[in-house]
Simulated assay, not measured.
Amino acid sequence: MSRTIRQNAPNIAAGSSTMGPSTAAPSTLDRLSRRVVVGLLCTMAGLAAAGTGGAFLLKPGTAQAGRVVGDTLRTAANYARLPAMIFTLSDGDRLRELRVRVVLDMEPTAPAKTVESYGPRIASAMTNVMLETDPGELRGRNGAFYIKDAVMRTAAKELGAMKIRQVLVQELVMR
């Protein structure tokens, strides 16, 4: 039995001497992990540079000294509400009732109270426009566009120099 141990011992020693210190090239896994780490570091550096550049490009807004906050908010929206208008339309066989409520979005320089004082005049002028309207023109989606256009033209004639941005329909009901 000692003889078999002696024979195996030189083989073990010989195998260990061939292994020696690890001087071989790094494995594929090591090279791949280094590339991933370098790639992640480059990505992080790029994102940091982009964030810093964005911070310099997007400067915060400057405060407007001497301006009252209420004036700033007033210039954003200037609405004038017109009175509810009720029109009677005829389609040949029967009479239809049309109820319309609109709001005018005015330029910031036009005082809303002044525009609202023109409301009865605009409603009266709209009555004349709607006498010529066929109820079939007001059906579907085109009805709102027709009303907006008619109110825009009529209000522009009545208001003269005051500019209207948009006509907003609050209610449009035909019975």
Rank of each mutant, 00 (worst) to 15 (best):
A25T: 05
V100Y: 09
S124F: 12
P60A: 15
S90K: 01
R34D: 15
V102H: 06
E137G: 03
A156I: 00
A24M: 08
S90F: 04
T43K: 01
V100D: 09
A13R: 10
Q7D: 08
A48E: 05
T43N: 02
G15C: 01
V38Y: 11
V167H: 06
M85T: 03
L95E: 08
E107H: 03
R3M: 07
E158N: 03
Q170I: 07
A24F: 08
M152I: 00
L40S: 08
Y118P: 04
G51A: 14
K148C: 14
I12C: 06
G20Q: 12
R121Y: 11
Y146Q: 03
N11D: 05
Y118I: 03
S90Q: 00
G46F: 05
V102P: 12
N142Y: 07
L32H: 02
I12P: 04
E132Q: 11
A155N: 07
G46N: 07
V151E: 02
G61E: 13
G136H: 06
V100R: 09
A161I: 03
G92E: 04
T62S: 15
S33K: 02
L131F: 10
K59E: 13
S117G: 08
V37F: 03
C42V: 11
D149Y: 00
R153I: 03
A13P: 00
G39W: 08
A49T: 00
R81P: 03
L73C: 05
M44F: 12
V100M: 10
E116S: 08
V151S: 01
N11H: 11
L104Q: 06
G70Y: 01
E116N: 00
N11V: 07
R74W: 02
T72A: 15
A150E: 05
P120V: 11
G46C: 14
P111Y: 08
L57W: 12
R153M: 08
T4M: 10
V100E: 08
T52A: 15
S117D: 14
